[in-house]
Nucleic acid binder design. Structure first.
Lengths: 146, 146
DNA sequence: CGGGTCAAGAGAACTATTCGCATGTCACCT
DNA sequence: AGGTGACATGCGAATAGTTCTCTTGACCCG
């Protein structure tokens, strides 16, 4: 019997294949963006006994073998997504909290500058960029003009 | 009697002048970068009775009147700094956690791109940029080559 | 300089995450 | 297939960071 790519990934690194790991991975893939809590809820639809600790531990494992990545979008809750998606930067509105994903390539020049000037290899996808979205920016303009 | 600029700032917005607010502001100015806990310690050198709740409330007030700003540097505690300092972006090394400050102007072109392409007004100083610093980047190169 | 109202102190509560330990289970080895 | 040892999970307690509630204290307008 042949094994799925994700199973092979885990096995290569000496990790075991468990139902929990499969379910968490499937939930992350399906959710697109998901916090640990959201992933727990999703997993519990199938297996209600799964514990939050397991979610955290499993996310860590899946990330360490490169199946998923996470991004910090605000204060607390990190967001996990499938490594299959093309790398993207998150723009988060401080005001309405809307999240826009843009191609990581948008920051190519900025990254290059950081590399050349400071020798710093930036991971632009790991931390969101905060600011004001189109809608909220025009709202606050109206306010200051009115 | 004339009042300091920071007192005026608070009063303008209807806030009272208190010893705690003065001490917190002075600590932030003095520390350069400080987490709420660090600011508490610093304040307590002068006034040992000050409570952590007060630190949080005061930081919020001082930020709302524009005397200080904060930046999210990673998972843990946010970092506060004086608004007097010139605006800067924080580069944080994932590996050694070293923080480098660079002028906000370094991201001017990137910000402009975000504005023009997505209508998004980025606040580059509010969230740190993570990645690998010069030292750690060369270390991991050595590892993969050796 | 009295009093209304905002601020501070104290500690509980809350959110997000991690840890320790006992039990369960995967996978290797016969 | 069955035994076994190490790894994984469940569970609750612990931790970190922050916010809330409530009572007491203090600023500052008049």
């Amino acid at each position: 019997m042949e094994s799925s790519p994700w199973e092979a990934r885990l096995r290569e690194q000496g990790f075991r294949i468990t139902a929990q790991r499969q379910l968490v991975l499937e939930s992350v893939n399906q959710l697109g963006h998901g916090t640990p809590e959201e992933i727990l809820s999703s997993v519990q639809k199938t297996a209600s006994g799964v514990n939050l600790s397991t979610i955290y531990r499993t996310l860590e494992v899946l990330e360490s073998v490169g199946l998923i990545t996470h991004t910090h979008i605000g204060h607390g809750a990190p967001v996990y997504h499938s490594q299959d998606e093309s790398p993207h930067i998150h723009l988060v509105c401080d005001d309405c909290a809307e999240v826009t994903s843009i191609p990581a390539a948008s920051a190519a020049q900025f990254s290059l500058d950081l590399k050349e000037t400071y020798g710093f290899t930036a991971h632009m996808t790991h931390m969101a960029v905060t600011g004001s979205c189109k809608t909220c920016a025009s709202k606050s303009e109206l306010k200051s003009n009115g």
